[in-house]
Design a binder for these strands. Structure first.
Length: 530
DNA sequence: AAAAAAC
């Protein structure tokens, strides 16, 4: 198999690439004139119908490098029922939705049927779109195969196949699914294949499924590292120590901080930290893979739109998500795999902007930090003295374990001071707590230009927050799925959580009469729960 | 020590 190498061209415009007038005008309307290197390298070949192997990370303009030529090529011909003309495979639901947005944006002059097949949402609408004939099908592997097994989908009309984030698919164990899907599609198709790295398994895959591909490699944005200020922040290792370290950091950075993603290693930590931050009046949302899909979408949309300033997330948000202009990344946990560190901090400093990342480190993290420093090839500076200066948090909790060392729930007697106080006093009013909030955080809440709009925005936000919390409940009790699942499905409205003791619900009802009604902020609703 | 993805 031969493959020629195309290097990045200099200073071309989109008009030079051979895109159709309809596509060009949408690109121009979006405000772009100059293609990125991956776009300049891939688009002309993709337009000629050649297979492309694109080696590029997200943030390099990779998505448009397949969306734009696909739109141009789709102008000829039309879709038949259940036989999509193109298929784009993505590793996560959010990425799939993001690609759909790109097709909508750049395809605004086209009349295309776009279908998004992802899990966690109902089949009905997806079925309808397939039945109508999809020009563009964007999918995560599981749901795609599900539709196919149900006989709702024929893949033998696919003219263009895109496999995006292949190395991540590999990490996630999707490669067998990808192979199956590739084998369902006629080999006369065009294949556009993208991966940030080329491990041997991925190379093997490209040898099997690509025909004489043009290889377009974009040098790793080495500059990405230089426009991101990276710091390590020492902390005690207990959850409340780390939460306090984080809060102090957030307050210290407040003036410079536009918005931030806070990464945790585990989903439960995302939930716990999220709840804790809400109690401290931080304007936070949460995102992890066990939340229901509507809440995931809502949180992400609100964070993107600036309605949420902080997003606590698992690594579902580490790669690929295009959230322009995130000013800060906080690693609440040091990532276990060094590559994840690179992906996480890459959420800031996008498009040549500057960014800041802080990684909270405890004594048990040193070997992971070593691995990260080896990978990125530099030492990361300590923000405020290294771990040798950490004062261990003493007290009740370093005392001998109660029980058999069973994991303690956050928010019990070992939780931080504020959490304790709230648990005792329950319906504490806002004025009391606001003292501890950084002034800018408070100010931001009152600077909404349009009151009605703000109310709507906050409404959606609270609902998503409530969903996030409720989905955590359903997650823990997945055994009684029958009862929990059914109403959750199509219902878009928050439901009363009957899983809590009546006493607690009563308490909430009392709180509701104080004046928040059904839209009482989530941080008040959950006071008794943590 | 994890996360993600179908039901």
């Amino acid at each position: 198999m031969s493959s020629d190498t195309t290097t990045a061209q200099e200073a071309l415009t989109f008009a030079d690439l051979g895109l159709s007038p309809k596509v060009l005008s949408a690109v121009t309307d979006a405000g772009y004139t100059q293609p990125t290197p991956i776009q300049a390298g891939a688009i002309p070949h993709a337009l000629l119908g050649k297979d492309v192997l694109g080696i590029a990370q997200t943030g390099t303009g990779k998505t448009a490098s397949f969306v734009l030529p696909m739109l141009t090529r789709l102008e000829k011909g039309r879709a038949r029922a259940r036989m999509p003309r193109t298929l784009i495979l993505e590793p996560t639901r959010e990425l799939a939705a993001q690609v759909e947005e790109n097709f909508v944006k750049y395809g605004k002059n086209h009349k295309l049927n776009i279908a998004l097949l992802i899990g966690g949402v109902s089949f009905d609408e997806q079925d309808k779109k397939l039945e109508r004939g999809a020009d563009v099908l964007i999918a995560t592997p599981g749901r795609l195969l599900d539709h196919r097994e149900r006989g709702k989908l024929l893949l033998n009309g696919v003219e263009i196949l895109v496999i995006d984030e292949a190395d991540r698919m590999l990490d996630m164990g999707f490669i067998p699914d990808i192979e199956r899907i590739c084998e369902m599609i006629p080999f006369t198709r065009q294949t556009l294949f993208f991966s940030a790295t080329m491990p041997p398994e991925i190379t093997k895959l490209t040898e099997k499924f690509l025909h004489a591909p043009v290889r377009v490699e974009v040098s790793k944005a080495a500059s990405a590292a230089t426009n991101i200020i990276q710091r390590l922040v020492k902390s005690g290792s207990k959850p409340w120590d780390k939460r306090e370290t984080l809060r102090n950091l957030m307050k210290a950075e407040d003036a410079e901080l536009k918005n931030a993603i806070i990464f945790c290693n585990r989903k439960v930590e995302v939930s716990e930290l999220f709840r804790s931050l809400l109690k401290y009046d931080f304007d936070a949302g949460a995102l992890h893979g066990d939340m229901d899909q509507r809440a995931r979408m809502q949180m992400l949309a609100n964070f993107r739109d600036g309605k949420l300033r902080y997003l606590v997330a698992s690594d579902v948000a580490a790669r690929g998500l295009d959230i322009p202009d995130v000013s800060h990344v906080f690693n609440y946990d040091v990532p276990i795999h060094a590559e994840d560190y690179v992906h996480r901090i890459g959420r800031t400093g996008r498009a040549g902007r500057s960014g800041k990342s802080f990684t909270i480190a405890t004594k048990t993290d040193t070997k992971y930090i070593d691995a990260i420093e080896r990978l990125i090839g530099t030492k990361i500076e300590w923000h405020d003295g290294d771990l040798s200066t950490v004062v261990a948090s003493e007290g009740e909790d370093d005392a001998p374990r109660r029980g058999k060392g069973a994991p303690r729930r956050a928010g019990r007697k070992d939780d931080d001071r504020k959490d304790r106080g709230e648990r005792k006093r329950g319906g504490e009013h806002r004025a009391g707590r606001s003292e501890e909030v950084a002034p800018a955080v408070v100010a931001q809440r009152h600077e909404q230009p349009d009151v009605a709009e703000a109310a709507v925005a906050e409404n959606g936000e609270r609902r998503a927050r409530k969903d996030a919390i409720r989905s955590d409940n359903t997650e823990r009790k997945s055994s009684d799925r029958n009862e929990q699942r059914a109403p959750e499905r199509g219902d878009t409205r928050p439901q009363r959580d009957n899983s809590r003791p009546a006493r607690q619900r009563h308490q909430e009802d009392n709180d509701a009469t104080v004046g928040f009604g059904d839209d009482m902020p989530a941080f008040m609703r959950i006071v008794a729960k943590v």
